[in-house]
Every structure is written in C-alpha cells, then in structure tokens.
Design a protein around this nucleic acid. Structure first.
Length: 413
DNA sequence: GCACCCCGACGTCAACACGT
DNA sequence: ACGTGTTGACGTCGGGGTGC
C-alpha cells in the first residue's frame, strides 16, 4: 500500500481577494483527452507547493518533509486535507472552514472525470463555504451562491506531462464560455457509478467519517501503512475508536467491531486488570441461539485488543465445557483455548463447523449490509448536494442569459 | 389509551461481481 | 472453482405521528 501523508493546504479561492490573478497569461494546455484547452490561465503559484494534480484531476498532496503544514497566501482560514487513493481514482477531501464562530468541517469525495461536490454537514448549504470559496477538482465547478451577478467556473488543469501524476504544480484555467458549455455537457453526461464510488471508497478509505460528529483517526501499526490524521482535537486513543457506543479496535490491520453496550465482563482478574487472554461474553439480541466470545488479548506494549468470535450454541456449549475449571499453561484461571477447526472430524463436528461458518457468514453480511447502507446514504447526500450545485448553476446561467439578452436588445435598439 | 400508518434501521437471502 | 464483498429485495421491529 502506498504511503501517503496528508498535507494541509489552503485551497480557498476568492475572486474578490484576487488571490488568483485572473488575467495572468494565456496558453493552451493539453487535457486528458489530448485536446487543446483554450483557456485563460490563472496562476496558481499561491497554492501550496507540492500540490499536484493527477491525470484524473484529483488534487494530490504529496508528502514532502520540508513542506509540512504550509500556510498559503490564498487563505489562512480555510484548510483542506486531501487523501489520495491508491489507484488514482477517488480522493476524499476534508475541509475545515471557519463559519462564524464555529469552525465547520466538511467532507467531499473528489471523483475523476466527474463534477465533484463539497459535502457540507447537516443541511449546510454550499453557500456557507463563503464567497467564492472553491475546492477544485479537474472538471469540478463550485460557484459562490452570492456571486457578483456572474458565474465564474474555474477548472483545474494539470501542467503535468505524461500520465499527469507527476506534475510539479497546478494551474487554474478560466475556461471560455463555449468550452465551458461543452465541458458542462460532458460533466452532466458522466453520471457517477455507485458501485465504483463505493469500491473506491471502501478499498483504502484512510479517513473514516462516521456520522456528523465523529472523526476517526487510525494510526499505522508497525509502519508501512498509511498515516492519516484527522482533527487533532479529537481525543482518540491509538487503535481504539469509539463511535456512538461502538468500539472499534484495530490490531494488525484487523478492525473488529464490538458494540460496547452489549459487552459484559464475565471473567477477569479481581483487581480489574486484564492480562494475557481473557474472555468476555457479549449478549446479542439478534442471534438468540448464538453467543459471542470476546478474546481480550494484551499486546507487548500493554495495548489491549478485543477480538469477538461469534459461536453457535453448540460451539458455546463446547466452549464452556472446555473452559470449566481448567487452568491453562499460562496460569490464567478459566483461560480459553480455541479448538482448531482442523481437529473437527466426526459428522457432528462437521455440522457444527458448517453452522459456525454460516454464523460467520451472517455476521460478515450483517456488517456489510450496515456498511452498504451507510455508503448508500452518503452517496445520496452527495447526489443531493450535487443537485443543489447544479440548480444554483442553472439559476445563475439563466440570469446570465437574461442579462445578455437585455444587453443585446439594448444594443440593437 | 388504542389502533393504524409511516418511516428508518436492521437482518437475512439471493444474485452477482471480483479476486485468487 | 471458490471465497468474499456488494447490493437489491423482503420481512421485521420499534418509534413517532395521527385519528378515534
């Protein structure tokens, strides 16, 4: 897995502040399809150095040790964290935007070849992003709701050569109206693939957003994995995440979900400390015929992991028989040793194994269904935001058309 | 208070996609 | 071929709103 370190940059572009000089130069750039893009080029030198644009238009924030936490002159108030996805498809952008007295955090999924939408929480419109604040993806257009009567679509094009993944910087292009119209049609024609989006999201989603008030920080283990940091004010212990009563424990890349409300401490040392392997019994209302054993292991560094194992009733019975009054080699009272599946030989055990596998399958599917619904809702939200953007865009275009018509009529009179 | 309806969340099944 | 992930469809359950 690629190691990608997030960089903080500012990508707020204010036309009123003239942070980007609209009238800098003009040249032709070769787009993705190899066609020249007649544009008025805007200098984006004010954007953070090291920021790159992939061939698919995704903003890449390449790790450079010397360029950590660079504040730009564009805006010192709006910050974004883009998380490029290996494979170059989708990037997740976290934006921290001061809104009044309360900083606002929004998340968006930047997709290649598609108009992307900054997703604001809970009914927060794009207007709250501030006047002419734009988070850019190639082909993405986000307009100020206030505006100055006109529409200023800004498009990212890359100066990168070759595959576009190794560009040295980005260039902002103010497209001509004709070109913009054509691109707009293309954008509208490219509807997002739900399956693809979800695949991209689920494949290596490094920063997890679980609800409106939760950010999850998952730290790397022994190195080599991604390091992603969310809001540093979020107090989360390493490898332990609690979200709405659900604890997420990561151990060696394994993420186990344990509903905290369902955990009851069944065994453990008397002083409350847990050492070695302990067991907890979890009540599970959904599967009355089954139980869940939680192996509670303590790592070398004192870190503790919960590893839930769903068992059938038969398994539970065997489990209890095996653990009753047994002292293991570790010296732990009532310690647990799981019977390896390979030792199951007789028909009854085979049936139990089948049952166990079914339970495992059901458990996995249950979690998958939850995840699927979550992604679906997220996707629907994204679509709704997109609708809002397009409606605003449409409204602005209608206004523009109206004013141009009036201008034309006045000239002819 | 009770019945009814609606809605959202959930679990399960089945079909399909996809990687190995 | 097989295991696993994804997702539509379906049924169930609980909470909230409404009419009686």
């Amino acid at each position: 897995m690629d190691t990608l370190v997030e960089e903080q940059i500012s990508v707020a572009v204010s036309s009123s502040q003239s942070a980007i000089d609209r009238a800098t130069t003009s040249s032709n750039q070769t787009g993705q399809n190899g066609t020249a893009q007649p544009t008025g080029i805007l200098s984006a030198s004010s954007l953070v150095s090291g920021t790159q644009v992939r061939g698919n238009g995704t903003i890449l924030l390449m790790p450079r040790a010397s360029e950590k936490n660079i504040a730009t002159t564009v805006s010192s108030t709006t910050q974004a964290i883009a998380v490029p996805q290996p494979g170059g498809a989708v990037s997740i952008v976290h934006v921290s935007i001061p809104s009044g007295t309360q900083p606002m955090h929004v998340q968006s999924v930047i997709q290649p070849n598609q108009q992307s939408v900054i997703q604001a929480p809970g009914g927060t419109g794009l207007q709250s992003l501030g006047k002419n604040v734009i988070l850019l993806n190639k082909g993405s257009v986000i307009h100020s709701a206030e505006g100055d009567g006109g529409v200023h679509p800004v498009q990212l094009i890359t100066t990168a050569k070759g595959d576009g993944c190794d560009g040295d910087g980005i260039t902002l292009a103010l497209s001509t109206a004709e070109d913009e119209s054509r691109k707009r049609r293309e954008i509208l024609a490219r509807r997002p693939s739900y399956r693809k989006i979800l695949n991209e999201l689920s494949s290596t989603e490094p920063v997890v957003s679980l609800g409106t008030n939760v950010e999850v920080k998952e730290e790397s283990g022994t190195g080599g994995d991604n390091i992603h940091e969310s809001d540093t004010s979020t107090a989360l212990a390493s490898n332990t995440i609690t979200v709405a009563g659900t604890q997420y424990h990561t151990a060696q890349g394994l993420l186990k979900v344990v509903p905290a409300s369902a955990i009851q401490l069944a065994t453990g040392s008397q002083d409350g400390t847990l050492q070695g392997l302990q067991t907890l019994t979890m009540t599970n209302a959904g599967t009355a015929a089954t139980g869940t054993i939680v192996q509670y292991a303590q790592g070398q560094d004192g870190q503790q992991f919960l590893v839930p194992v769903t068992l059938s009733a038969a398994d539970l019975q065997a489990y209890q028989i095996r653990t009753a009054g047994v002292t293991t080699s570790t010296g732990l009272p009532q310690g647990v040793v799981m019977t390896p599946a390979s030792t199951i030989q007789n028909p009854q055990q085979l049936a139990e194994e089948t049952s166990r596998r079914r339970e495992h399958r059901l458990l996995k599917n249950r979690e998958a269904a939850k995840e699927c619904r979550r992604k679906k809702k997220e996707y629907i939200k994204c679509l709704e935001n997109r609708v809002a953007v397009l409606e605003n865009q449409n409204k602005a275009l209608i206004e523009e058309l109206k004013s141009l018509k009036e201008l034309y009529c006045q000239k002819n009179e």
